[in-house]
């Protein structure tokens, strides 16, 4: 029995070494200590009533939190710059749908179609994220996700923000 336990510990140590070294170099790496919502019901997906069939997929708060940890995911705040300045999901880029003509050329120029984009807005009946998601999808961005719970859910779950 002692031998079995020793062997099991040895295998565990190898696994720790491999998983930690892979996670330090992989493109899909996640932080060792992550941020997860501490509220219940974070896996329910909110959808606007106007959502249609061909729209980009909607994701729940916990899916957004999962994507937030990946380096290949960009968060886009579709609200006006005034709201964005007051508070936003940490690292989010501002691309206000109402000022799209002005912002699109200077913001979207650096976008990579291989990356995933999570679009959100305030979370209160705000459909800017859906409209922007439709626009980006029609412009040929294949990996668009809409986090309709938005800023309100994110902030309430005490996930990382910038102000």
């Amino acid at each position: 029995m002692i031998l079995r336990i020793k062997q099991a510990l040895f295998i565990t140590l190898i696994s720790i070494a491999l998983s930690f070294s892979l996670n330090s170099f992989s493109g899909d790496r996640i932080p060792f200590i992550g941020n997860w919502p501490s509220i219940s019901g974070s896996d329910s997906i909110l959808r606007p009533p106007s959502a249609g069939k061909g729209d980009p997929p909607f994701i729940s708060l916990d899916e957004a939190a999962a994507k937030f940890q990946s380096k290949n995911v960009v968060f886009i705040d579709s609200r006006d710059p005034a709201d964005y300045d007051i508070g936003r999901i940490k690292g989010a880029i501002n691309l206000p749908f109402d000022l799209l003509e002005e912002f699109w050329p200077k913001v979207v120029g650096g976008f990579d179609k291989e990356k995933e984009y999570v679009i959100y807005c305030s979370g209160d009946e705000c459909e800017l994220s859906l409209f922007l998601g439709r626009e980006m999808k029609s412009q040929g961005y294949p990996k668009i996700f809409i986090f309709f719970g938005g800023w309100r859910e994110w902030e309430r779950a005490k996930l990382p923000v910038e102000r």
């Binding site: 998983s19 899909d28 916990d62």
Partner: peptide
């Protein structure tokens, strides 16, 4: 192993 973030979400759930 290929999708650590998605698996972490499942663990969270």
């Amino acid at each position: 192993i290929s999708n650590p973030a998605q698996f972490a979400r499942i663990v969270y759930n």
